[in-house]
């Protein structure tokens, strides 16, 4: 008889700690080993650079050059570990630059998305004549390196007195970011099912209302991704800021850092300089770490199916 006797205590079934992978997917092929080695090497080099940057920001110039990979000591012993940061903040005009950058980046990113989202929606969902061609035309904009248009852009902006002007900078940022953002969002809107719009049309919603109350909330993931990617890109943007902004009061962080670079290296204040770099880089790094998952899923959404 095979009836189970409930009085006999059976050892509870233990699931494996890690489910077995599919056969054949585990072997250490040469390509796999090579790939793993490359990935780890790449990661290690990047971590090393990050470590060097962060540790050097707390060092004296002598420490930086004699013991590049040791932990910082001098300023800690003097009881003033953040001396370099204070120096950079005070001497580079980062206080105002920080404010300018935060406002400029925030306003630009939001406006970019506000303009791109309806554009992408119209290009993908409204069945407008020539929409595919127009989408491709927008995409071509991504293929033009902005460095090649800096000079004509400067001349044009100078004509209308918008150089060395934060509003002009805002216009340039928005215009140059549109192709990528529109393209990113078209992929997003394309992935949303047609039936939702049809259902909304039968429910009596106008196209504008359908966009606002149905499609926009569904594309929220894509909008947030576009917002973050633009914010990171604009935060780090240097070349245009150097070309267009030449007055301290208008400097963005990256532009201020550039000015600070000449001053600090002249005075051999390398610790302060690197602390300045850290002040510019770290906020975006933290933002990215916090939102990495969201950004990656956002970028691949609409790619499959």
């Amino acid at each position: 008889m095979s009836t189970v006797d409930s009085r006999v205590s059976v050892a509870p079934r233990k699931p494996p700690r890690k489910p077995k992978p599919a056969p054949g997917s585990r072997g250490l092929s040469p390509l796999r080993v090579l790939g793993m080695a490359f990935v780890w090497l790449f990661t290690a080099v990047n971590l090393l650079v990050l470590y060097w940057l962060v540790s050097a920001a707390f060092k004296t110039p002598i420490e930086i050059f004699t013991k590049p990979f040791a932990l910082p000591a001098h300023w800690f012993e003097r009881g003033d570990p953040f001396r370099n940061f204070a120096y950079a903040w005070d001497n580079a005009g980062f206080g105002r630059a920080f404010l300018v950058t935060v406002v400029l980046v925030a306003v630009s990113s939001v406006v970019i998305v506000l303009v791109s989202a309806p554009a992408a929606y119209a290009l993908t969902r409204l069945g407008a004549r020539g929409a595919d061609g127009m989408t491709n035309f927008v995409a071509i904009g991504m293929g033009v390196p902005f460095q090649t248009v800096v000079i004509p852009l400067f001349i044009g902006m100078a004509e209308v007195n918008l150089t060395n002007d934060l509003f002009g900078m805002f216009l340039v940022y928005v215009a140059l970011s549109l192709p990528f953002t529109v393209f990113l969002l078209t992929g997003f809107f394309k992935s949303l099912p047609d039936e939702l719009e049809e259902a909304a049309a039968l429910d009596g919603a106008s196209p504008l209302r359908t966009f606002r109350t149905i499609m926009l909330p569904l594309a929220r993931g894509g909008l947030v991704t576009a917002l973050i990617l633009n914010a990171i890109g604009l935060w780090n943007e240097t070349l245009l800021a150097i070309v267009f902004l030449n007055e301290n009061a208008n400097f963005t962080l990256a532009r201020a850092l550039f000015a600070f670079n000449s001053a600090a290296s002249y005075q051999s204040e390398y610790g302060g300089l690197i602390a300045g770099v850290a002040i510019v880089v770290l906020p975006m790094l933290v933002l990215y770490l916090l939102l990495a998952r969201r950004i990656i899923t956002g970028l691949t959404l609409g790619a499959g199916k």
Partner: peptide, 20 residues
Amino acid sequence: LPPKDRDIAMVFQNYALYPH
């Protein structure tokens, strides 16, 4: 006539419920 003026309700194959 556009769909909204026809006084018709439709049930879709994949339901097309508004997910949010």
